[in-house]
Design a binder for these strands. Sequence first.
RNA 1: GACCGGGUAGCUCAAUGGCAGAGCAUCGGCCUUUUAAGCCGCUGGUUGUGGGUUCGAAUCCCACCCUGGUCACCA
Length: 541
Amino acid sequence: MLAIRKAKLERIRDEFGLDPYGQRTEGLIPLADARAAYDQAADQQFKDNPDAGDPRPVVKVAGRVMQHRVMGNLIFMSLRDATDEGLQIAVSKKAVGNETFKLAKLTDLSDIVIAQGPLATTKTGEVTVWAGMGSGASGLGSGPAADTNDAPNTPANADSDASPNPKPQTPAPAFTVITKSLALPPGKFHGLQDPETRYRKRYVDLYTNPHVMKTMQQRIAIIDAMRDYLRDKGFLEVETPMLQTLHGGAAARPFHTHHNALDLPLTLRIAPELYLKRLLVGGMPKVFEINRNFRNEGVSPRHNPEFTMLEAYEAFGSYETMAELVEDMVCTVAQKVFGTLTIEHKNEDGEVTRTINLERPWRRVSMVDLVEERTGWKFDQQPASDEIIDRLRSENKGKDLDFSGTPAEQLVEVYEKLIEPTLIDPCYVTHVPSVIIPLAKKNREDPFFADVYELAINGVEISPGYSELNDPAVQEANFRSQVGDEAEQQQIDEDFLEALRVGMPPAGGMGLGIDRLVMMLTGAPSIRDVILFPLMRPEKQ
RNA sequence: GACCGGGUAGCUCAAUGGCAGAGCAUCGGCCUUUUAAGCCGCUGGUUGUGGGUUCGAAUCCCACCCUGGUCACCA
């Protein structure tokens, strides 16, 4: 079957004298713009009185062929680009001549083609580019393979509009194959469904499944809107090292690499935090960074080894100013990109499966109060009783609940495994045990807790925010008494401690998982649906 | 890493121990208003890989590979 397509490629080259891999082409407009250019009055006027001139706008479009219907001497194709799921073109033998018509007939699904002609509806009312029809388009051109057709060879309207003195030029073809596809396309009805193939061959997924293109475009729009928001608030976007000699700023295992010239072991960053704080020391008052973090951890529907994180720091702020910032920013972004603060997730049948209400104000509750509200037990500095442990275990058989830690760790365990997944509408969880957060200030009234929030939306943590610890002595002590797996503990970054000794203003800081935010806003069930090229193990030969 | 499910034609899927199939795509015809076009005809397979059981394996067994989900880790 591939051989058949290759043979067609050679025919395009030999028989039609065309380059099956095309060249630069001017005057193309997106399919959506072409559709919008349709002029109903002009169409009607021409249909009523074709002899009184052709007022219909002429467009030149390119797209991938998604459908190809040959009706004898008239061919309809549905083209797709990033702006339109299926703008129809029609190639009529009478309008384009025998040669071009043969080429159109030879065209395969998934080829990329160019068509030029007036916009008119069909009998069924579909806006269609009628290749080569009317006064504004021509046949294949005057090259060696020029055919004999009865369309006038005048330059296209689109070109003459652009210049008051149009240069004489080779007339643009009414229809041409600009890129031959040598791959067999997925079925035109079901498309590409297999998740594995979709992630491996995203280039097919993107053109085959319009919702994928849409989701990715929404991701881009969300990030753009966040940048706009932060810049409006006076934040400077900075870039800090991804190759680090000490990985800090979070508790996670890093990827290891090596710099040859310096013979230096390096890790990919797990967080930019410690460098952004150095910028506060240096005098930048408001900074943010949107970029990749790398964590050598498991893969799941909510985890990809490289993921995109926003971190922002504001001198003289606190976790409360950051909560205000995140709340306002997310609402602004949702309003700008989606036009609503009510986010609905839908299944394949279009039924709403989850509704997230982003209306302000968002709930704020301390972790102890929230866990008590949901479990009836106050996990507050006292170890959980055997009864409550037995009850929670029996009520949550699928979960592997670990109560072997300190009371603080028990509280966090219950919150993260049992409560957080139930937090669908935005909820700021505050007063997190300070022992698990070495980079934040302790609460002045009760130093058992840290001055931080953890924002959960859609059942996952979207954003943490801190009143950043700026006391070098406390910071050093925290580094030296960390809890948890040794492999994930933060290394002691002496230069960072030196920066704190130079003096960092009190500050608010926050991180925001971009991928999870996009999942929440678009309803994507897997992080892989919002990352263009998620990590996949290579297929064995 | 553990457990459960999946891998059959380009795509979407059937076939539970007895000739490996359908729709669409492909290929050859007919057709100038179709749009999952229609009609006629034809193709297309190392059933993920390697072993085993059996007269006979897509189907049962073992190992491995890739993968979706859950759990663990983590954001």
